[in-house]
Nucleic acid binder design. Sequence first.
DNA 1: ACCTGAACACCGTTCAAGT
DNA 2: ACCTGAACACCGTTCAAGT
Lengths: 228, 228
Amino acid sequence: MITKETSRRLDPERVVDTALAIADDEGPAAVSFRKLAAQHDVTPMALYRHFKDKDDLLAALGDRLLADVVLPEPTDEPWDKQLHALLTAFVDALRAHPRLADLTLPRILVATPGLALAERALELLIEGGFSVDDAAEIGRQSICSLIALVTTDPVAREVSDPEAREASLRRKRASLSALSPTQYPLVTSAAGALICPSSRDRYYAIGVDLVVAGIRGVVDQPTLRTSV
Amino acid sequence: MITKETSRRLDPERVVDTALAIADDEGPAAVSFRKLAAQHDVTPMALYRHFKDKDDLLAALGDRLLADVVLPEPTDEPWDKQLHALLTAFVDALRAHPRLADLTLPRILVATPGLALAERALELLIEGGFSVDDAAEIGRQSICSLIALVTTDPVAREVSDPEAREASLRRKRASLSALSPTQYPLVTSAAGALICPSSRDRYYAIGVDLVVAGIRGVVDQPTLRTSV
DNA sequence: ACCTGAACACCGTTCAAGT
DNA sequence: ACCTGAACACCGTTCAAGT
């Protein structure tokens, strides 16, 4: 029994692999059908058999990231602790690909791992006392915040080239230290922390803490009571 | 005394005006030097006298948005109430241009209105009990969250074309209602709220509330005490 | 200083055609 | 079903040149 790989010269999964690699170090804008085709010894048009258009390819990248989310098992801890663990799992998956984190948003309610995440988040929020609709709204916004957290990861944001990265940091530092300390006393004295956080782990820990603390603080808050 | 407009055929501010208009309804990617040049009866290359490159043009757009921020006067209310007002002012300026909100992030510590906002935010956070460095970190993350809030504004996100918008909403609703209600009971029952929030004002109100509640909840929290 | 013209090295995507 | 070839309508940007 011989493999029937006669007609399938192109494996879509392998195309996504190389797209992921390109996007990781040059950003999603640098991913092009022409580049991918060249790397797979094929005409650009061949890709259209496997991806409807570029958006479809990027959607596949988003699905890849979501597939890396490992949901924590339910425990008997309070809802907010479990939500914290759930959101940390989400962030942990995205952290590996900071430039692509955005791509997950439109895929969450489509890809299976995204749906599982959403379902569990709603469960916990409702356990926390939110109505179904409020849970949906709060959950949506929390996910957006965390994606933004990853997207703006100050460590990974710059180009992979470490020398260009250093140059950009120096430029930022210079522009801040050129400011008048009497006009902007706090901005100038916080320059270091504003430009680059002390540690990447701490950055993400604070990010998730802020989101969960926000949710905890907003239960039974007047804004949610507003009809409309 | 006659106007000396002999040599300046091209007014950079007017170019930014039309770039803003294009970006507002087709997104920043649709802004091109060639299109702008055509609309101003000039060669694409003429723009390079006024903008170093496309990034420089987009930076000018970011500055435009920041210029619309109207900082509230300091009052004698508690720090968190004042911070709420400050962040609301920021969001209010960005809301007018949801597709461009991202462009402000790299300009905040550069443009004057952004610096004023940052300085005031740091003041209030320090008044709230944060160290200078923690205030910087928390402030940075809060701004990122709010930009994401605007960027993902579910009402304005889709194309301006209201018919295409309706079609996209229908497609999303259909994809959610195709899910198994036994497997995803909450996602399916919250479908409406997940796809589109009830009101735009409420959406933004909840967004700012969440951020401020998060900050309030995180004062004196263990994560911030971690050295490093 | 400000603008033009031609050119280079890219894009996504359509359409008709091959096997 | 899967891939090719040629073409269309775009991009940003460089370089040399005009006034």
